[in-house]
Design a protein around this nucleic acid. Structure first.
Lengths: 152, 152
DNA sequence: CAAAATTAAATTGTGTACAATTCAATTTTT
DNA sequence: AAAAATTGAATTGTACACAATTTAATTTTG
């Protein structure tokens, strides 16, 4: 009458997916107290990273870079606009497109964020080399996944 | 009058955090079509993995295992209950505690899920060894983060 | 034992994710 | 050029995450 034990492949601790999911949320949690003084959430910070790197992208270009769709980005960008960090403007030549530009305040915020990466590296207790290796493995995995899926 | 270029540490592609975040969402996306026939979302699947491994946990025990709080778990468990996969019951001896048990349907679902891990491994194109190594690095990172933070 | 403190879930509120639909603007076809 | 197809955002609806508060039950204290 004893139940079958769960097969090994279904054990939580065996799952790469859960290790990823847990690590991602943990790291986001590390950012939270660092971003709070800047008035940013973690996904908002990612948008700012992209814009600091190259200002004046469209919503869909931001979406390609971050792998997020307009259902996520539109309200997020409206909040950044509300915080005075970006401007959203429909393009004259093609009214379908919305260009996102940093405001002065948005650009200025970069300086306040510049210490964050080092702070994170400290907390994670990884050497620069370990960090790069792990990052590149994860990138490879992501690329692999985005290549293979159900071709239609 | 040219703007300063963004410092290297703030480049999106340099960020371990984004590699993690993107990889985690990609992997979740891989699960989606596999879980859909089972009527599960990815976080619901994680809850089921835990219960298949050990049935009859409390909400907070589930929370410890998955690092999720009642704000996430309570509605999620209600949906699993609505789907007939688990039962939620306040404990007689301590009415504060809610025990979560698999229903017969919930247990039976395990068989339908048993092929998923192998399917995932295929998609990710990683050897068993590579998967384990990456998984263990991520676990170490998560553990490290959860040890160090602001001690209060 | 009664008041205070603690505990476990649930609730509330904000902010993502993401599928699916809608809507308006532009291109492509005929 | 008008109809059809396509495109880019926005909207809608569902389901997490997670902080903060609330509620009820149990323990601990005085």
């Amino acid at each position: 009458m004893k139940r079958q034990p769960t097969p090994d492949q279904l054990l939580l601790d065996q799952q790469l997916c859960f290790a990823l999911y847990a690590a991602s949320r943990s790291v986001t949690g590390l950012y939270r107290p660092l971003l709070e003084p800047l008035g940013l959430t973690y996904p908002q910070y990612l948008v700012m990273l992209v814009l600091w790197e190259r200002d004046g992208l469209t919503v869909s270009e931001l979406g390609q870079r971050l792998q997020l769709d307009s259902g996520t980005l539109t309200p997020l960008l409206k909040r950044l606009q509300g915080a005075g960090l970006v401007a959203r403007q429909r393009r004259k030549e093609d009214e379908r497109v919305v260009d996102i530009h940093l405001t002065d305040a948005g650009l200025a915020l970069r300086d306040k964020a510049s210490g964050i990466p080092e702070c994170l590296a400290q907390c994670m207790q990884l050497s620069l080399d370990q960090m790069q290796t792990l990052r590149d493995e994860l990138k490879r995995l992501t690329r692999q996944i985005q290549l293979s899926p159900s071709e239609d």
